[in-house]
Simulated assay, not measured.
Amino acid sequence: MKTIYLLLTFLGIVLPFSQFIPWLVENGFHFPLLLQQIVENPLAVFAWLDVIVTVIVIVCMVVSEGKKLKMRKLWIPIAASFIGGASVGLPLFLYMKQCHLENKI
């Protein structure tokens, strides 16, 4: 599973950023435009709210599971969730958890 989690982390970085980076190149750090485009379409609002709730759940899970297992560097999947989204933070945490569990045995 470790390899699958690592692959999913990579896909979670590449796929979303393959769409965001061209937008960023075209528009720059135009935060008002970003917000406008997020809220101008109900489907986009749905997707963003889903991501926000999912990231909050991931943070809670990382803190809870990580402390229970006495894992280190829990800030990494939390930061990855806020920077790259749920598609990066969740598989990265699962990868780190699997590595931690394998080293304990």
Rank of each mutant, 00 (worst) to 15 (best):
A44E: 08
Y95V: 00
I52Y: 15
L24S: 06
V39I: 14
H100E: 04
I38N: 10
H30R: 06
F29E: 04
M96T: 02
F17E: 06
M61C: 11
W48Q: 02
Q37K: 06
I38A: 13
I78C: 01
Q36L: 09
V45A: 09
K67W: 11
Y95P: 00
V63Q: 11
W75T: 02
V45K: 09
K68E: 08
W75F: 13
K67Q: 09
L33Q: 11
I105T: 09
F10D: 02
K73W: 00
N41Y: 14
M61F: 14
S87A: 11
V25Q: 12
I38F: 15
L69P: 02
E102D: 13
C99P: 00
A80K: 00
V25S: 09
E40V: 03
F29H: 05
L43F: 13
H100I: 01
A44Y: 15
L24F: 15
V57T: 06
E40F: 12
I4C: 08
E65P: 01
L7W: 15
W75L: 07
G84C: 07
N27C: 08
F29R: 01
I38M: 15
V45T: 07
A80W: 02
V57D: 09
S18M: 08
T9S: 07
P42Y: 12
L11D: 05
V51I: 13
A79L: 13
L15E: 06
L94G: 03
K70W: 11
M1R: 10
G28D: 10
L69A: 09
I58W: 13
L92K: 00
F10E: 02
I58C: 10
N41R: 06
I21R: 07
I13R: 10
K67E: 07
I83L: 14
L24M: 11
N41T: 02
T9A: 04
P42N: 05
P16T: 03
G84P: 03
W75N: 04
Y5F: 13
K104C: 03
V88G: 04
V57M: 13
L43P: 01
Y95A: 01
L15I: 13
P16F: 12
F20C: 01
V45M: 14
V57S: 10
F46I: 00
M1V: 05
G85N: 08
V14A: 14
L94H: 05
V62C: 04
E40A: 06
L74V: 03
V39P: 06
E102F: 11
K67N: 11
L33M: 12
F46M: 04
S87T: 07
F29P: 00
L6P: 01
M71F: 00
G84L: 10
V55S: 05
V45W: 15
V57P: 03
H100F: 07
S64E: 12
T3L: 14
E102K: 06
E26V: 03
R72V: 02
V88M: 12
F10W: 14
S81P: 06
L35W: 15
Q98P: 01
L33W: 14
F29C: 04
W23A: 05
G28R: 05
P42E: 09
S81R: 08
S64Q: 12
V55C: 07
V62H: 08
L94E: 08
L92S: 00
G89Q: 04
